[in-house]
Computed example of a mutant assay.
Amino acid sequence: MKLVRTTVATVTVAAAMMAGALTAATPAYAATYGGECGSGYGVVNSAAIGAKGTVFLTYSAATGRNCVVAKRNTAGSPVLIEAGLAIHPVGSHWTAYEGDQFRSYAGPIYLQAAGRCVDWMGRISGTQGGKRGTNCG
């Protein structure tokens, strides 16, 4: 009887370790900024686009321009991806906008906004992320 209990306990521990190893081996895919706006631009803000991707707001102190890129977590077949950027409040139209069927990301889009609050967004297949009235001054 003792041998059976030890074997069952060993199998249980081994199964738990294997499940943990499988979980740890599966990477969590998340969009990362890859310099799409060009040299001199650094990420100053970001927001999740649901579980589909991330929208990045970048800024260049040298030019006083903001840039937005909306990126999918993983590239794939083309889907509708949109990026918008405007001086706060946005009103009825984005000052800078790009939207089309893309495999990976929309943008970069640019706006001169030194010393101003901005509204920015990214949308992937109807799921939106972004922020309003941020990064002032």
Results as ranks from 00 to 15, higher is better:
residue 1 M to C: 11
residue 2 K to Y: 01
residue 3 L to H: 13
residue 3 L to I: 06
residue 4 V to M: 04
residue 4 V to K: 15
residue 5 R to F: 08
residue 5 R to A: 11
residue 7 T to S: 15
residue 8 V to Q: 02
residue 8 V to G: 05
residue 8 V to Y: 10
residue 9 A to T: 08
residue 10 T to G: 09
residue 10 T to E: 06
residue 11 V to P: 00
residue 12 T to A: 10
residue 14 A to F: 13
residue 16 A to D: 11
residue 16 A to I: 10
residue 19 A to H: 08
residue 20 G to W: 12
residue 21 A to E: 07
residue 21 A to P: 03
residue 22 L to H: 05
residue 25 A to W: 09
residue 26 T to Q: 15
residue 27 P to E: 07
residue 29 Y to A: 11
residue 32 T to D: 14
residue 36 E to Q: 11
residue 37 C to H: 09
residue 38 G to T: 14
residue 39 S to H: 14
residue 41 Y to M: 13
residue 42 G to F: 15
residue 42 G to A: 12
residue 44 V to T: 09
residue 47 A to Y: 04
residue 47 A to D: 09
residue 47 A to E: 15
residue 50 G to M: 08
residue 53 G to N: 05
residue 53 G to M: 05
residue 53 G to D: 03
residue 54 T to I: 02
residue 58 T to A: 09
residue 60 S to Y: 08
residue 61 A to L: 15
residue 62 A to Y: 15
residue 63 T to I: 03
residue 63 T to N: 00
residue 66 N to R: 00
residue 67 C to S: 05
residue 68 V to E: 12
residue 69 V to R: 12
residue 73 N to P: 13
residue 73 N to M: 06
residue 73 N to I: 00
residue 74 T to W: 01
residue 74 T to Y: 04
residue 74 T to K: 12
residue 75 A to R: 09
residue 77 S to K: 03
residue 77 S to W: 01
residue 78 P to E: 07
residue 78 P to W: 02
residue 82 E to D: 12
residue 82 E to N: 13
residue 85 L to S: 07
residue 85 L to T: 03
residue 85 L to C: 08
residue 86 A to Y: 10
residue 86 A to C: 05
residue 88 H to R: 01
residue 88 H to P: 08
residue 89 P to Q: 04
residue 91 G to P: 00
residue 92 S to H: 00
residue 93 H to S: 06
residue 93 H to R: 08
residue 94 W to H: 01
residue 95 T to Q: 11
residue 97 Y to Q: 01
residue 98 E to R: 10
residue 98 E to D: 15
residue 99 G to H: 01
residue 100 D to S: 12
residue 102 F to V: 05
residue 102 F to L: 02
residue 102 F to H: 15
residue 103 R to D: 12
residue 103 R to W: 01
residue 104 S to D: 15
residue 106 A to T: 13
residue 107 G to T: 14
residue 107 G to D: 08
residue 107 G to W: 12
residue 107 G to P: 05
residue 109 I to W: 07
residue 110 Y to T: 15
residue 113 A to H: 03
residue 114 A to Q: 15
residue 115 G to T: 04
residue 116 R to I: 00
residue 117 C to W: 00
residue 118 V to S: 01
residue 118 V to D: 00
residue 120 W to V: 00
residue 120 W to E: 03
residue 120 W to D: 05
residue 121 M to N: 01
residue 121 M to H: 02
residue 122 G to T: 03
residue 122 G to W: 01
residue 123 R to H: 06
residue 124 I to P: 02
residue 126 G to N: 13
residue 127 T to C: 03
residue 128 Q to F: 02
residue 129 G to A: 00
residue 129 G to H: 06
residue 130 G to L: 06
residue 130 G to P: 07
residue 132 R to H: 04
residue 132 R to Y: 04
residue 132 R to E: 04
residue 132 R to A: 03
residue 134 T to E: 12
residue 134 T to H: 00
residue 136 C to G: 12
residue 137 G to F: 04
